[in-house]
Nucleic acid binder design. Structure first.
Lengths: 265, 265
DNA sequence: CCATCTTTGTGCACGCGTTCACAAAGACAT
DNA sequence: ATGTCTTTGTGAACGCGTGCACAAAGATGG
């Protein structure tokens, strides 16, 4: 998963726990699958398995939305799809702009999961003049000079940032100033935004690092000696203030470290 | 953030809380930034701000790794970079395969944040014969027939799935059978894996849906009447078992609903 | 109409994560 | 050497999220 969520104490909107909100899209996906196969009803047990969660958790999650099940039977698939869609705000149309049309931006523009859930790509924006006019996913790329104009004309409130890290904050500021109040950030930077603006971030390399941690643990059962000396004792073996082991990474990374280097932006 | 994590009770490896592990890459990024600017030391306050977290949380996180700070001064940047890198397992080389070379797969292959953190793209794999041999990010794409061979020859333990949803489970099974024990899944499906295999998932559309929820709340302060009737009472207004409102989404989505449609795979 | 059986909805307890607030540790000046 | 000042490391309290286990609700069959 990408990690994410901002520092704010998790809006806690009208009693629906943030953790539940994060799972609703999961349920929705499982439910639309069932809907396509014309399954009329599901039990919490079946749906929970399909969504990869615990059935008790699922029932509790649904209880925050209301009593939509029928005891002894289960949940009506179509009805639940509608209710969750409505709760998530997917019954209305959300115009979205994607800024930074590199590989990632193009992948996002082509992503089918957006359009089918009420998200409409209003515009693709890139800072490279050479990109302007070039169609990506059937939509012509527009130059970032027109960013504010595009936001206002289309009433865009959600922006996706897929630029290099260096440009992200600046793009973010412009989006916010133009009226965007929700941002999905793919650039590896911490964005600072005013109150009232939501930011979620997806960091590709963070997920991989978390996997590496667990992978190391798994392997470390055997090679404990080399891999993991007790960290509490490490501080003692060197000088206390400027330890000897510093900078031991063999390959020092260049300044491109934080750059996705994926998108020309 | 991308969401993610699997049902398993969060390995809880050697006392380092999962939540802390998930933040270590964040600290590492902030620290490498400071390192490049040759900043020798940071206080927990400064670093916390740079990483976008609370300073108490940061100190507690570091306390799980050991006592690496100096009271009255702060933390030695280089030393901390090394310690976190080591803890995350980034001081060793992790060969990775990416399966599914569409737009997203290509974006991942080009992503600079991988190589700089000890991840090496051992191979790009795609099921489309037309892709075979074509270089992406300087690496020739190989056909998925060779998947097992590639995994074994390179000792790959981490796999990235960027295929359409329909192919994901099958690819996953083959990866696992060939020896992969950590999977980063970008396909919108719940993967089932045997014990001992870690899965993290990144779902682009889920993040957007969560944003839409909060966006709706923000807007809903005004248009309460239409947007959010009390859900507990909704169940009463229709028939109890098969409610009237079902299927009210105007645009029914096709079967491509779950398909990223991004990558030919 | 009653009994049985299935499945929901939730009260409760527990554990993890977050935050506060402060004592202890050390740097630095005198 | 002693005092002051800064900043860490952590004990303790709190709140959220999870999962168990069960009572209530309703369907279904006789």
């Amino acid at each position: 998963m990408a990690t994410g969520r901002t520092h704010r104490p998790a809006t806690r909107s009208r009693g629906i726990p943030e953790a539940t909100v994060a799972r609703l899209p999961l349920y929705l996906r499982a439910l639309t699958g069932l809907s396509e196969r014309s399954v009329p009803t599901v039990s919490s047990e079946e749906l929970a398995t399909a969504a990869g969660v615990n059935s008790a958790k699922l029932r509790k999650d649904f209880s925050y939305l209301g009593s939509y099940g029928t005891r002894g039977v289960g949940y009506d698939v179509e009805y639940l799809v509608y209710q969750i869609s409505r709760e998530l705000g997917l019954t209305q149309d959300w115009p979205v702009v994607i800024v930074g049309i590199g590989n990632l931006g193009a992948a996002l523009a082509n992503y089918g999961g957006f359009a089918s859930r009420g998200f409409r790509v209003a515009a693709l924006i890139d800072a490279d003049p050479a990109m302007a006019g070039k169609p990506v996913a059937g939509i012509p790329v527009r130059h970032s000079d027109q960013l504010e104009e595009i936001i206002r004309d289309n009433g865009v409130s959600i922006g996706v940032i897929a630029t290099p890290a260096g440009a992200a904050q600046q793009v973010c500021d412009r989006l916010v100033a133009a009226g965007v109040t929700s941002i999905l950030n793919f650039a590896p930077t911490v964005l600072s935004v005013p109150d009232g603006v939501d930011v979620r971030k997806v960091d590709l390399s963070i997920e991989l690092q978390i996997l590496a941690f667990h992978e190391q643990r798994k392997a470390g059962e055997d090679v404990r000696d080399v891999a993991a000396p007790p960290p509490t004792t490490v501080a003692q073996d060197g000088a206390s203030s400027r330890p000897a082991g510093a900078g031991a990474r063999t390959d020092r990374e260049g300044p491109d470290d934080e750059l996705p280097a994926v998108m020309p932006a």
